[in-house]
Design a protein around this nucleic acid. Sequence first.
DNA 1: AGCCCCTAATTGCATAGGCAATTAGACAGG
DNA 2: CCTGTCTAATTGCCTATGCAATTAGGGGCT
Lengths: 250, 250
Amino acid sequence: MTQETRLDAVKLDGSGPIYDQIRRAVRDLILNGTWPPGTSVPPEHALMEQLGASRMTVHRALVQLAREGLITRRRRSGTIVASPPASHAMLDILSIPAEVEKLGRRYDYTVLSRANGRPTAELSLRFGLKRGEKIIHLVALHRADGKPHVLEERVIHLATVPAAAQETFETTPPGDWLLGHSLWSQAEHAISAIPAEPDDAQLLDIKPGEACLLIERKTWNQDAPVTAVRLLYPGNRHRFIGRFGPYGEV
Amino acid sequence: MTQETRLDAVKLDGSGPIYDQIRRAVRDLILNGTWPPGTSVPPEHALMEQLGASRMTVHRALVQLAREGLITRRRRSGTIVASPPASHAMLDILSIPAEVEKLGRRYDYTVLSRANGRPTAELSLRFGLKRGEKIIHLVALHRADGKPHVLEERVIHLATVPAAAQETFETTPPGDWLLGHSLWSQAEHAISAIPAEPDDAQLLDIKPGEACLLIERKTWNQDAPVTAVRLLYPGNRHRFIGRFGPYGEV
DNA sequence: AGCCCCTAATTGCATAGGCAATTAGACAGG
DNA sequence: CCTGTCTAATTGCCTATGCAATTAGGGGCT
């Protein structure tokens, strides 16, 4: 069911146009988790009275948020906080099980190692970590129809996601677990091609030196690092596709 | 200077909300080239009178187009058609000279081959072409500080870009030439990693089989294919980076 | 229970009008 | 010529109001 919202949670900051103050106020409540997906947003009338703005001004803010995909609006039913779009191309690489199943293959995976503590020198170099940080370091192999699909090496920042300390990730892969147990507001992807190291090649069942696609992703929540992951895809078996027009995504 | 616009070029199609009819009408004039970048869009008052809509309705359409980046608006100066954003990450790979110079290197390039006619069987397979189509087929090597940077293999559809028939591409690389001599409304990118073929390896000055990043891009203008290109970047010397949030690009 | 209809809540869209902010261009004065 | 000032064009934003479209939920009937 849609949950209640506390109306007085919406607070304007007095800078810039009113419609934009409203937009940012609501957006922040969504992004910082105060209003999780499914929460119902107060109707325009309520916001209008509480904020002392006209309905058109409130409307303008909400319409814009709807166009940005953060909320869903329906006549009579009202406005609810949207779930991050599951069909978006990005989620395909956030959730490896989803990616594999979309290809019509059977998914499974194995955690190859799990270490809890502070990063080694090599790790902090590879992921750009500070030495003192408490982290979890994981290596996992994901398979499609029993064959190696992608090798995952991941770091989780315990300061940001303390709940991860109790998790073994034996049943849910870390990417999917994090989707349900953490928030993120920013991600950075880097794509490159590298030859497979001998160890990695053996795990992926390819020849050493064979071309692999490396996806490195770091995510943050409000400037606090959440996780960093290196996904190594074996060679030419994988492609990533995007469509857009000259002025932006279509 | 900003050019004139013919007011009567804006025609509504009567389907859907008025603000959206206006938005689409103006957008189409921009995308189909009737109003090229730099053209000044009629002021709200003029559109309002010509279309019989209120100013707020016209305003809403234009504000939306501005947010989509198709137009630029300034008080008193008016509204002009924007140039596709030169700083956008995408342009970095549309224009290889720009990409190289952004890295602070000296750019030059050589056309290795140029053929005019119908695709061979191999070509039509590689680029997904129909056999009868008239095309130009090009191979060019781009260099940064004199060293191989990327190998480009390109097909240009003469039916869509007839002017390309007279062009040798000796002074302007085909990607940049096309930016100035054609329109596109859609692009599709695919990224994958492949080992270098012996021929390609020699041109790129790397070892055969070394990991390369392959970017394949096809562009269309209103469903008509414009060009298709394969860009082969040598190994781990290159990465492509993108940033976004859970609800879309940030 | 099940079905139908009605009402009212809620968003969607448009209008009319007004004031604010910016600034191009005209104009005056040196 | 240059420089400052004024004016008016243009967009930005807000309010107030009304009607339309959708539909959840209630009430009544079978």
